[in-house]
């Protein structure tokens, strides 16, 4: 048993000791951030069933509200759906015709088919943003093959990229996070740009060609680079202010539920050597070695332009 004096000393020393430990954790976070995030991912793995249980009532209420809203205006909803169905039928016919035409054209061009990407589908376990970041955690189950850099999409468009991988859970950094930079292509003006997240709902477009400004309403797609394939739908251009183009994402970044993570593999294709980059054989350093035929001349002083210098 400790004496009263020892207990008083311990009581006074414990807070500075704990503060030192906290400072140690801050330093550990600065030096070995992945280790700390790994512990957090493990905790999320452990809590995943509880999270599903917690949000289940909320999801049920949302479904009931949607049903109730539909039931109150059934006739109007019915006519709207019939109209939408007619339009979709038309677009389906157009898509089938275009797919057939595309197939014929590719066939005649001897198009090399692209490999089908592997993907896993996961449910959003929790919104993992915090005040300064936009990220979500996905429960993708055990035995997954997800790697850092894989692409996450929802039903409508690009959502983000995988930044951390745990045993059951992966973390996806969303396109509107401040650290997100995605190379994109503008579909109509054919300009390239970088889509930079700024913690708002609509990421900014930067580094676009000054003679080809993005056009309001044009489609934005990914530009093929590294593990990111070309042509993934991202969103549409909108000018929130003069000379400030932003991308309105196709993906619903606020209400995420089911997300697919695609592995497009590494883009390890190497460009062939360009003609201008062919290595030129170096000329010998001293082309005029050996005795000159006119060695009878007296030694000349060193002058600029003489070989072998």
């Amino acid at each position: 048993m400790l004496s009263i004096h020892a207990r008083q000393v311990l009581a006074k020393a414990i807070l500075p000791l704990l503060i030192l430990l906290a400072v140690g954790l801050v330093l550990l976070g600065l030096v070995r951030r992945p280790a700390v995030d790994g512990v957090r991912l493990m905790a999320t793995d452990f809590m995943a069933p509880a999270y599903h249980g917690l949000v289940w009532p909320q999801e049920r209420v949302a479904v009931w509200l949607t049903d109730l809203r539909g039931a109150t205006d059934l006739a109007k909803e019915n006519s709207r759906l019939r109209e939408e169905n007619r339009a979709l039928r038309h677009w389906y016919d157009v898509a089938v015709a275009l797919a057939a035409e595309n197939g014929r054209l590719k066939n005649s061009l001897h198009w090399i088919p692209q490999t089908v990407p592997q993907y896993v589908t996961g449910r959003v376990t929790r919104d993992d943003g915090g005040p300064y970041s936009r990220a979500v955690l996905l429960d993708v189950g055990s035995g997954h093959q997800v790697r850092i850099g894989d692409v996450a999409l929802d039903a409508a468009g690009l959502l983000g990229r995988v930044t951390e991988v745990g045993p059951h859970t992966v973390r996806v950094l969303m396109i509107n996070d401040d650290a997100s930079r995605i190379p994109v292509t503008l579909a109509s003006s054919h300009g390239d740009a970088i889509m930079a997240g700024d913690d708002t709902a609509a990421p900014r477009l930067i580094f676009y060609p000054q003679d080809h400004h993005p056009v309001e309403g044009e489609r934005v797609e990914t530009r093929g680079q590294s593990t990111m394939p070309a042509g993934l739908p991202v969103g549409t251009v909108h000018y929130s202010a003069p000379n400030r183009p932003v991308v309105v994402p196709d993906a619903d970044l606020d209400r995420l539920d089911i997300v697919r993570v695609f592995d497009y593999g590494d883009d390890d294709s190497q460009a062939p050597d360009a003609p201008g980059r062919v290595r030129v054989k170096k000329l010998p350093q001293n082309p005029l070695t050996g005795p000159l035929p006119f060695s009878w001349l007296p030694n000349l002083p060193d002058m600029p332009g003489r070989g072998g210098q």
Partner: peptide, 25 residues
Amino acid sequence: PALAVFLCGLVVEIFSFGPPGTVLL
């Protein structure tokens, strides 16, 4: 007590994704 504050801080740290140690400190 101080030890309880430390434990609470650790729990908040584990269940958030901010820079490690800031909430605890």
